[in-house]
Design a protein around this nucleic acid. Structure first.
Ligand SMILES: [Mn+2]
Ligand SMILES: [Mn+2]
Length: 560
DNA sequence: ACCGAGCACTCAATA
DNA sequence: AGTTCTTCTG
DNA sequence: TATTGAGTGCTCCAGAAGAAC
C-alpha cells in the first residue's frame, strides 16, 4: 500500500504554459476581491503585469518561483522563453527586474550564493589570492572567508562575463499569496500538485463576496506577524536574550482575530518552552501568562512547583479543573495537582485512575513492526487491521462529508482547502444545524449508515478531506467494520470527536480485530512503551460506553 | 504542516 | 569517486 | 519496578540534475 492513491491516473501532461495560467488565476482573484486592500504599488502591479508581453510574464513567474532575488542570466534557460533578453527588457522597463550588465560592481552579499565553490576558488585566484588553504573549507566557512577577503579585494564581486538580474516586487506577490490562501505556507505548487493528480480537492462553493481579510489593518497584522517570525527557527537555536527580544516584538495576546491569535500564541508557547530549557523559568512564566491556549497553564503550574511555589502551582491546578480548556488540560490539573499535594502532605482529590484490560504476549519479532506482528498473531481469531486513528477518523469524515463541506459563509475562500476555515470554532455545528441532523439520520440504522458511507466512498474517492485517509483504509475493511461495530458505539465515538475535533482525532488504538461475532480495539505496546494520555482518555471513554478494548503488552522471546 | 502533528523510541529522575 | 543534500520541475 | 517527564526521530509528490561533502 505505497504511493499515491491516485497513481492510476499517471501520465498527466500539463500545458506548457501551466504556471502562467495558475499565476493569472491567482491574481485574477486578487483583482476581483481585494483591490480595496491593496497599496498603489500592488494595484500598479496588476495593471502593469497584464500589459506585459507573454514571455516577459512567463520569465517573471519563473524567477518568482525560484530561490532568492538574484540570478545569473546564463542560468535562466527555458525553452518556452527563447529570447531571454527580449523578455527581460520589458520587465526592466516596468521596473520588475533590474538588469546588471557584465563588469558591474555588486554587493558581495547579492552574488555570494550565485556561484559554486569551484567558481569562487577561480575568482579568488583571479584576484591574486592563494587558494591552497581555502580548498578544504566547507561552503559556509569559505563564504565567511570571502567576506573577510573582500574588504581588501573589491574585485571579488566583479565579474567579466556575467549578466545578472535582480527580481523586484516579490513582496507584492507574497501579499497576493497571503490574500489568496490565507496563509504563507501554500503557494503556486498547490495548483501543480492538484493538476498532476497528487491531490484532489472537493468542489465546494467559494463565495466571492466573503473573504479571509476584512480590512487593511487585518491584513497588515498578519503580514506583521509573518515578518516577525521570519527568523523564528534561528532564534530558537540562540540564547535567552535573542528569544526574549523576539517575544517582545510579538503583539499582545489574546487578540480578536482568532486565527492570528492562535498563531501568535503557538509561537509564544514554543519560545517560552525554549526559555525553560535554557533555565529561564521566570521569563517563560511571563510569556505563558500572556497565553490562554494549552499547555500555557500546565507549563506555568510545573514551573511554580519546580520553584517550590506550591500554593501558586496548586491554585493554578484548581483553576484548570474549574475551567479546563480541554480534557487533556483537565487530566493534567487533576493528576499533577494530586501528586504535588500528596508530596507536600496536603489534601487533594485522587484522580480517576482507569486501568484498561490488558494482556501480555510473547512473540518473535519479524521486523515489520510490533503492531503488525500482533495483528498477525490475532489473525487466528479473525480479521485484524493496523488502523490507528485512520479508521474512525475516516468513517467520521465520510459520514459527515456534507457537514464538513457545507457552503457556509466564509468557510471556503480558495480551491485548495481540505477543510472549512472554521472547523475548530465552537459554533461550527450551530452554523450547520440542518446538514448535521440530516447526516445523523444515517445513524438510525445499520443499512442507512452502510449506504451513506459506502456511497460517499465511491462518490468522493481520493478527494482530500481533513478526516479521511484514503491510502490506509480500504472499502472491504469499512464494510466489515460497519457490520461488526454496533451503532451506539459509533455514535458515541463520533460524538466525542465532535466535542473536541482537534484533540479527539488522535489516540485511537493501533488495531481493530473483527471476529465473527464482534470486534475489539487493541493498543499494542512494545517493551518500554506506555500508554499516552490521549490513548488512555479514549480507553476510559470506551469503558464508559462498553466499547470492547484492550492493551496488549508485547515481550520478545528471541532476544537472549 | 495553517508555523507541526502524531506516534514510538530512548533516557533519566522519581516513588 | 561514491553518497548525500539542495534546488528545480511538472 | 512502574510511573512520569523530557528529548529524539520519522513522514508528509516524485524524480532529475547539480552541488557539496
Ligand atoms: Mn500506534
Ligand atoms: Mn501502540
Amino acid at each position: 500500500m505505497t504511493g499515491s492513491i491516485l497513481e492510476g491516473q499517471m501520465n498527466v501532461e500539463l500545458a506548457s504554459d501551466y504556471y502562467l495560467t495558475n499565476f493569472k488565476e491567482l491574481i485574477e482573484y486578487i483583482g476581483s476581491t481585494y483591490t480595496d486592500l491593496l497599496s498603489s504599488e500592488e494595484r500598479g502591479f496588476l495593471l502593469i503585469f497584464s500589459q506585459l508581453p507573454r514571455e516577459s510574464q512567463m520569465l517573471y513567474i519563473r524567477m518568482l518561483t525560484r530561490k532568492g532575488e538574484w540570478f545569473r542570466a546564463r542560468k535562466l534557460n527555458y525553452q518556452e522563453i527563447p529570447d531571454l533578453f527580449g523578455a527581460v527588457t520589458s520587465l526592466e522597463k516596468s521596473d520588475l527586474v533590474q538588469v546588471y550588465p557584465a563588469k558591474s560592481m555588486l554587493p558581495l552579499a547579492a552574488v555570494i550564493g550565485l556561484f559554486t565553490k569551484a567558481e569562487w576558488l577561480l575568482q579568488l585566484k583571479f584576484c591574486g589570492i592563494d587558494t591552497a588553504s581555502l580548498k578544504t573549507l566547507k561552503r559556509a566557512a569559505l563564504e565567511e572567508r570571502i567576506f573577510e577577503l573582500a574588504e581588501h579585494h573589491s574585485a571579488l564581486s566583479y565579474f567579466e562575463n556575467e549578466i545578472l538580474f535582480c527580481l523586484k516586487g516579490s513582496a507584492v506577490f507574497d501579499t497576493f499569496k497571503l490574500l489568496y490562501f490565507g496563509n504563507q505556507h501554500q503557494d503556486l505548487t498547490e495548483f501543480v500538485l492538484r493538476d498532476l493528480g497528487h491531490y484532489r480537492y472537493e468542489d465546494y462553493l467559494i463565495n466571492r463576496d466573503t473573504r479571509s481579510f476584512q480590512d487593511k489593518s487585518q491584513l497588515q497584522a498578519h503580514q506583521h506577524y509573518y515578518a516577525i517570525i521570519e527568523p523564528l527557527e534561528e532564534v530558537l537555536l540562540q540564547s535567552k536574550a535573542e528569544i526574549i527580544a523576539l517575544v517582545e516584538q510579538l503583539p499582545a495576546t489574546p487578540q480578536s482575530d482568532r486565527l492570528l491569535d492562535r498563531r501568535i500564541q503557538s509561537v509564544k508557547l514554543r519560545l517560552a518552552r525554549q526559555l525553560e530549557r535554557l533555565d529561564a523559568p521566570q521569563q517563560a512564566l511571563l510569556i505563558y501568562q500572556q497565553c490562554n491556549i494549552p499547555p500555557a497553564r500546565e507549563r506555568s503550574a510545573r514551573i511554580f512547583v519546580k520553584q517550590q511555589r506550591i500554593d501558586e502551582g496548586l491554585n493554578l491546578c484548581r483553576e484548570i479543573i474549574a475551567q479546563p480548556r480541554s480534557e487533556a488540560e483537565q487530566q493534567f490539573g487533576e493528576g499533577f495537582g494530586y501528586r504535588t499535594a500528596r508530596k507536600h502532605k496536603l489534601d487533594w482529590q485522587a484522580p480517576s485512575n482507569y486501568k484498561p484490560p490488558r494482556r501480555t504476549l510473547t512473540l518473535t519479532p519479524t521486523g515489520a513492526g510490533v503492531e503488525v506482528d500482533v495483528a498477525c498473531y490475532f489473525s487466528q481469531n479473525g480479521e485484524c487491521h493496523f488502523v490507528e486513528n485512520d479508521l474512525f477518523s475516516s468513517l467520521f469524515g465520510l459520514l459527515y462529508w456534507e457537514v464538513i463541506f457545507a457552503p457556509v459563509k466564509g468557510a471556503f475562500t480558495n480551491p485548495f482547502q481540505i477543510r472549512p476555515h472554521d472547523l475548530h470554532e465552537p459554533d461550527f455545528l450551530t452554523q450547520r444545524q440542518a446538514v448535521f441532523s440530516q447526516a445523523n439520520h444515517a445513524l438510525l440504522s445499520q443499512e442507512l449508515l452502510n449506504d451513506a458511507i459506502t456511497s460517499r466512498w465511491t462518490e468522493k474517492f481520493g478527494i482530500a478531506n481533513y478526516f479521511v485517509n484514503w491510502s490506509w483504509i480500504d472499502e472491504a475493511l469499512i464494510h466489515t467494520a460497519l457490520a461488526r461495530i454496533p451503532l451506539p458505539h459509533l455514535k458515541a465515538i463520533f460524538q466525542r470527536i465532535w466535542q473536541d475535533i482537534r484533540a479527539n482525532c488522535s489516540g485511537f488504538p493501533d488495531l481493530i480485530l473483527l471476529t465473527d461475532t464482534g470486534y475489539e480495539l487493541i493498543e499494542v505496546k512494545g517493551p518500554g512503551d506506555t500508554l499516552q494520555a490521549n490513548q488512555l482518555r479514549w480507553m476510559r471513554y470506551f469503558h464508559q460506553q462498553n466499547i470492547p478494548h484492550r492493551v496488549v503488552y508485547v515481550e520478545f522471546d528471541s532476544l537472549g
